[in-house]
């Protein structure tokens, strides 16, 4: 019983929405790089939106199902197949016992999310199932998935069970799906919105102009901890001493070489480099779906616009929940 890993792929870890409340001890938040895709995947299978799922990076991950399971695949399109046949994303999907789910290659985006109805059964460490690779805690024994690993799913919720039963009768997936385009952008060149960072005023005018008008390319040094960018150099008006303080997901730091670094999900809790900007919450999933050589154009918005965009996104997510409830009733 359970789900067996035939091929781990490049990097597959268990992630939920992150480990909160322990940053003051230096313990990182971690969690899904693209939290909105994970939340939608969970909602689609009747889970709580913050349940742990798999984050699959780029390609290769192959899973054998040793029992019937209800899942959903969201996020980047890594060309998933079920027993060799292409399988649709962004909707509830029944995977039958003996079937093999495989992620082939990134067609668009970078990270796919797989939710399992009932969640993945791994112990929570400091209230989270997120894998913290460097400390070796959380997720599946504190590490990325390896060949022959087997994990189990939990008990399905009433909604999950209902969907599971419906899909047992006819097709293994529904004809409807979530229109993800308002939540996730899978283009290779993107406009990413930022608000000013704490040390914005410390950078020289020319640098700020370049930062907000020139393209910045993601280098090969881009992982769950951070993305190093390459573009026009950004310089301070004058050097100054900055003491370490709290940073967060999407903080854009500029070290002395003038090339910005964006802090991602597995960032450290504190940092001491000057911060030119901060990516707004709604645009973090866009960034999570980018990879080396992709290009970013930064655009400045106000804090008010950023928070209104986030409230609007939450409203859309609620509408999605309502629509799913309606769909379910329709199929009864």
């Amino acid at each position: 019983m359970g789900i067996k890993v035939l091929q781990p792929g490049m990097l597959t870890t268990i992630q939920d929405l992150g480990r909160y409340g322990v940053q003051k001890f230096g313990v990182i938040v971690g969690g899904a790089m693209d939290p909105i895709s994970l939340r939608i995947a969970n909602i689609l299978v009747g889970n709580s939106h913050d349940e742990g799922g798999l984050e699959v990076t780029l390609f290769g991950t192959t899973l054998l199902f040793e029992s019937d399971e209800l899942i959903a695949i969201t996020g980047g399109n890594l060309r998933p197949t079920l027993d060799g046949e292409e399988v649709p994303m962004w909707r509830p999907l029944l995977v039958q016992k003996g079937s093999v789910l495989k992620f082939h290659a990134a067609v668009s985006g970078c990270r796919a999310y797989v939710s399992f109805s009932g969640g993945i059964q791994v112990p929570e460490v400091m209230n989270s199932k997120s894998t913290y690779l460097r400390a070796g805690i959380g997720g599946f024994h504190g590490r990325k998935l390896q060949k022959k690993d087997v994990f189990e799913c939990g008990v399905r919720s009433a909604v999950g069970e209902e969907l599971f039963q419906q899909l047992q009768t006819e097709s293994i997936y529904f004809p409807w799906f979530v229109n993800y385009t308002s939540f996730v952008n899978l283009q290779k060149t993107k406009t990413i919105r930022i608000i000013r960072g704490s040390e914005y005023e410390r950078f020289d005018e020319e640098s700020i102009k370049n930062f907000l008008s020139m393209p910045y390319k993601i280098t090969t040094q881009a992982d769950r901890m951070g993305y190093r960018l390459e573009g026009e150099e950004i310089q301070l008006k004058a050097p100054f001493e900055l003491l370490s303080e709290g940073v967060t997901y999407g903080t854009i730091q500029v070290p002395s070489n003038g090339q910005p670094i964006i802090l991602m999900a597995d960032r450290q809790t504190t940092g001491g480099y000057p911060k030119i900007g901060q990516i707004i919450s709604t645009d973090l999933p866009f960034l999570a779906q980018m990879q080396a050589t992709d290009t970013i154009h930064f655009q400045e918005v106000t804090l008010e616009e950023a928070q209104k965009a986030l409230l609007h996104q939450e409203k859309q997510l609620n509408e999605l929940r309502m629509a799913l409830r309606f769909r379910r009733l329709q199929y009864k």
Partner: peptide, 21 residues
């Protein structure tokens, strides 16, 4: 309120804007 993080001369406060609103 999500959590607070002390540093040398600052306290960073993390919050959920949706819950606050």
């Amino acid at each position: 309120l999500i959590e607070t993080v002390p540093a040398y001369n600052s306290v960073t406060i993390y919050y959920n804007p949706v819950d606050v609103y």
